[in-house]
Amino acid sequence: MALSASNLKAGDTYTECLVDDLSRTQIVMYAGASGDYNPVHTDEKFTKEVAGYPSVFAHGMLTMGMTGRMLTNYVGDGRLTKYGVRFTSQVWPGDTLNSTATVVDVTDGVVNLNVETTNQDGVMVLSGYAAARVD
């Protein structure tokens, strides 16, 4: 269901838990579907011994994809006109992520949103914006 402009005001928020205890298998699924087979996401041996990280970590685009799910659940299907993010911290297996959209303004049938995704320690892993058509 799409949002109605008349029911929205600046400062409104919508929050979802994106993932509880992120599994390595979910990361493997994302690698397979997206085609990004960078071993730093799925190959523990390479990642520790060559790349120099403590373990494999999620694709930024997996976090952006899951955050997009929060957005489309909020604004409705096929409503987004813009969606952009910065990846501010890495996401690791075992992480639990929560994501919040905050209404910035509603003008000319478009809602502008701030988007933030944080991990279980309150560290922001993604920050960005989205715009969507509203009724």
Binding site: V40, H41, Y53, M61, M64, R86
Partner: peptide
């Protein structure tokens, strides 16, 4: 894109 240890994805906009 990412990269073999030295490269990471910093931003993405659609």
């Amino acid at each position: 894109g990412g990269g073999g240890g030295g490269g990471l994805h910093a931003e993405q906009h659609f």
